[in-house]
Amino acid sequence: MLNALQVFTTVIVGLMVGVEFSVAFVINPILNALPDDSSQRGRSHGGRMLGAVMPVWYITSLALVAVWAIAGRDHHGTGLVVTAGALLILSVIMSILLLVPINNQGKTWTPDTRPDDWKKQMNRWDRFHYVRVVIIIAAFVLLVAALA
């Protein structure tokens, strides 16, 4: 049973990492290359769509890692799992304090209502997101190492 939990948790966290990596290095660069109205509309739509899904995914991932750490406390690799959980907690805190406030504004913008500095705000979100991606990649690597 523990093995199934470990694999399931690693897959869920890995998929989350893949989505966030894709946002950082594929989707946003594509949107940034579009004309301003299209770029801003795409980012607003992405903010609404992923803003609804990702909090559930982050919390679910964190909960699964916590269950793994507790259930496997006497097994090899538990320290790695606990460290991965701490990194996921950091990513959630970072999201709540830094990324969500920017996203909550950006997802409501239209070409007529966006502020003059909207690109600056999106670039700020991107920088925070790059850091978050590094953190969750590190958490994923630790989970994979705990499986080995």
Rank of each mutant, 00 (worst) to 15 (best):
D112G: 04
L62I: 02
P115M: 07
D74E: 15
R132H: 02
L99C: 09
N123V: 03
I137F: 00
I12F: 13
V133A: 02
E20S: 09
H76V: 14
L90Y: 09
L5G: 03
P55C: 12
W109C: 03
N3A: 09
Q40Y: 03
D74G: 15
T9V: 07
D36K: 15
W125V: 00
L143P: 01
R48N: 13
P55H: 06
D112T: 14
F25C: 13
T78Y: 10
V23N: 11
D116Y: 06
K119D: 08
G47Y: 03
T9D: 05
S91W: 00
G77I: 01
F25P: 08
L87A: 03
L2W: 14
G106Q: 12
T113Q: 10
A66Q: 08
A84P: 05
E20N: 15
R41P: 01
Q6A: 11
M122N: 09
A146N: 01
Q6I: 09
D112W: 06
R73H: 15
I30T: 14
L142G: 01
G46W: 02
G14R: 07
A148Q: 03
L64M: 13
N104M: 13
L88N: 03
Q105C: 07
I96S: 10
H75A: 15
R48C: 07
R114I: 09
S44D: 01
T108N: 13
P111R: 07
L15K: 09
A4Y: 07
A52W: 14
E20K: 01
L34N: 13
T10I: 02
W57T: 11
V144L: 06
D74Q: 15
L5S: 12
I89M: 08
A66P: 08
R114S: 06
I59N: 02
L2V: 08
Q121L: 13
G77P: 10
L50V: 05
D37H: 13
W57R: 07
L34C: 08
L147Q: 02
Q6W: 05
P35I: 13
G79V: 05
I12V: 15
N3V: 10
G85Y: 01
R48P: 06
G85Q: 04
Q40F: 04
Q40R: 11
P55D: 06
A146L: 02
G18W: 06
Q40G: 10
M16V: 06
A139E: 00
V56K: 08
D117V: 05
W125K: 01
D117H: 12
A86P: 06
V23C: 11
I89T: 13
L80Q: 14
S38G: 04
Y130F: 05
I30S: 09
G47T: 03
V26A: 14
A33N: 13
V144T: 02
H75W: 10
R114G: 05
L99Y: 09
Q105H: 10
V23I: 15
D74P: 11
V7R: 08
L147G: 12
A86Q: 04
W118I: 05
L98A: 11
